[in-house]
Amino acid sequence: MTTITVHPEGWKPAKGYANGMIGDGRVLFVGGQIGWTPDQVFVAKDFIGQMQQALLNIRAIVRAAGGDVADIVRLTWFVTDKQEYLAHQKQVGAAYRDVMGYHFPAMTMVVVSALVEDEARIEIEATAVLSR
């Protein structure tokens, strides 16, 4: 799979995400993943633990489809507490890199009032472009 990061000339550098990505291959749409284990158990009750588990779930799905994290071209994050996210930026970055390495696709974050699972503090959906 080939991906190209798109960054308009003259724009300030994107920090921790890409403004755009171009991919050539099969498209995998990963439904929103929350911070529970494959057994649908919330082991982590905190934002960082749930974020890391949601990313691990996404990585597992992409790998099950024959890809890897470098094939992910977009992540959409839904968080229930903007202040909690902002207060833990350093831990967010460390937990992200633990799972995703230094791969930063196009990302969007949306603050929502609640998620369907009451214990969930974050939900992340992904799009990946896999080799043909």
Score class of each variant (00 low, 15 high):
Val92Glu: 11
Val43Asp: 12
Ala54Phe: 05
Met21Arg: 05
Ile124Cys: 02
Pro8Phe: 15
Ser113Lys: 14
Gln50Pro: 11
Val41Phe: 06
Gly16Ser: 10
Ala60Gly: 08
Phe104Trp: 15
Leu130His: 05
Ala14Cys: 08
Arg26Glu: 13
Thr3Ala: 00
Val111Pro: 05
Thr80Asp: 09
Val62Gly: 01
Ala106Gly: 06
Asp81Phe: 11
Arg59Tyr: 11
Asp39Leu: 12
Leu56Asp: 06
Gly49Thr: 11
Lys82Gln: 13
Leu28Asn: 07
Leu75Arg: 00
Ala114Glu: 11
Met21Thr: 03
Lys45Ser: 14
Tyr85Thr: 10
Gln53Asp: 12
Lys12Val: 07
Gln89Thr: 12
Glu119Pro: 03
Asp68Cys: 05
Tyr17Gln: 04
Pro105Cys: 09
Trp36Cys: 10
Asp24Leu: 07
Asp39Thr: 12
Gln53Pro: 09
Ile34Trp: 01
Gly66Leu: 10
Arg63Asp: 15
Asp24Gly: 02
Phe78Ile: 02
Thr76Gly: 04
Asp81Ser: 15
Leu56Phe: 04
Pro13His: 15
Leu115Val: 02
Phe29Lys: 13
Val116His: 14
His103Ala: 13
Lys45Glu: 13
Gly25Tyr: 02
Ile48Leu: 14
Leu55Ile: 10
Phe104Thr: 08
Ala94Val: 09
Met100Ala: 05
Gln33Asn: 03
Leu75Cys: 03
Ala65Lys: 12
Ala126Ile: 04
Thr37Met: 10
Ile22Met: 00
Asp98Pro: 04
Gln52Pro: 00
Ile124Arg: 00
Leu130Tyr: 07
Ile22Pro: 00
Thr80Ala: 10
Leu75Trp: 01
Tyr85Glu: 07
Gln89Tyr: 08
Met100Lys: 05
Pro38Leu: 14
Thr37Asp: 13
Pro105Gln: 10
Gly35Pro: 08
Glu9Phe: 13
Met100Asn: 05
Ala18Asp: 01
Ser113Asn: 14
Ala126Val: 07
Gly35Ile: 06
Ala44Pro: 04
Glu123Gln: 15
Gly31His: 12
Tyr85Gly: 02
Gly67Thr: 05
Met1Pro: 00
Ile72Cys: 01
Gly49Ser: 12
Gly35Tyr: 01
Gln91Ala: 15
Gly32Tyr: 13
Val111Arg: 11
Gly25Gln: 02
Trp77Pro: 01
